[in-house]
């Protein structure tokens, strides 16, 4: 097995493990490269038929390319898609201009809270990676959240070998992170090898491309001429800029990401 085969096998093991333990699960699909890779791996784990819903947390501020991609592949891969919105906050006019922390917390974290309560999910798959952010690097593969959604990062459960925290109280849920050990470049190498479709925003137009995508309002493109997967991989081998440098929610203050995540942010 080569390096990518090993990553793939390990992720599939984790995906199957969480389903075996909890059954009532869902996958978060932001339509970005990581969660689309996770979706691909999940299709492989279940031989093409994902036996649970795929959930898109829609802030309504996403790029139009994201919505088009979502609708196209939901149909093509016959996904059971849930679109989760915090309608109440949206109608009250919560938006990034009035405060990024509140906006992320309301339109992402609380939208997710509402959806979990409604559907009673016990576990959620998320495509976060350790190399994206120092706070995410502290995560477990199976990471519990209490009834208030809080991440008790000072008291995480032990995780030995392939044995994860699989017993939880009724009011808790588990965040499952099958891609935690992947690097950004591994994702692109795998996308290339498997011919996984990717949103066009990742590829350079007029010397600009997005390296990480989310809400149109809070993402900035990087200078780049990489307009193919091969060129993106080459660019990552030499880049000295971190992946999420264009993401506003990582920047506002040194611990904004920690505060968002401790309240249940992805």
């Amino acid at each position: 097995m080569n390096y990518l085969d090993k990553l793939e096998s390990k992720s599939i093991y984790i995906i199957r493990e969480a389903y075996a333990q909890f059954r009532k699960v869902a996958m978060l699909w932001s339509i970005g490269k990581d969660s689309t890779t996770l979706l691909w791996l999940t299709r492989k784990a279940f031989f093409g038929k994902i036996p649970f819903p795929v959930m898109h947390i829609d802030t309504t501020y996403k790029f139009k390319e994201i919505y088009e991609f979502r609708d196209k592949y939901t149909k093509k891969w016959a996904l059971d898609l849930i679109v989760a919105k915090n309608e109440n906050a949206i109608s009250k006019g919560v938006c990034p201009e009035k405060g990024k922390f509140k906006c992320c917390n309301e339109l992402k974290t609380n939208a997710l809270k509402i959806a979990i309560e409604k559907h009673k999910f016990r576990a959620l798959y998320l495509a976060i990676r350790r190399d994206e952010h120092g706070i995410r690097a502290k995560e477990r593969i199976f990471s519990p959240r209490d009834e208030c959604f809080e991440w008790d990062y000072k008291n995480q459960p032990p995780e030995l070998w392939d044995q994860y925290k699989t017993k939880i109280a009724q009011e808790e849920h588990i965040r499952v992170h099958p891609l935690l050990g992947w690097r950004e470049i591994d994702i692109w190498e795998y996308i290339k090898r498997e011919k996984i479709p990717a949103v066009s925003l990742y590829f350079a137009k007029e010397n600009k491309r997005y390296r990480s995508i989310g809400c149109e309002t809070c993402c900035s493109p990087i200078e780049s001429s990489a307009d193919t997967m091969e060129k993106i991989i080459e660019e990552l081998k030499t880049s000295k800029i971190s992946e999420r440098s264009g993401r506003a929610q990582d920047k506002e203050s040194a611990y904004m990401m920690q505060k968002l995540r401790s309240l249940g942010y992805m």
Binding site: R130, D131, G134, A137, K138, Y153, K154, Q156, G181
Partner: peptide, 8 residues
């Protein structure tokens, strides 16, 4: 250091 972490 409170919790373990991994870097490449």
């Amino acid at each position: 250091t409170i919790d373990t972490t991994q870097v490449f």
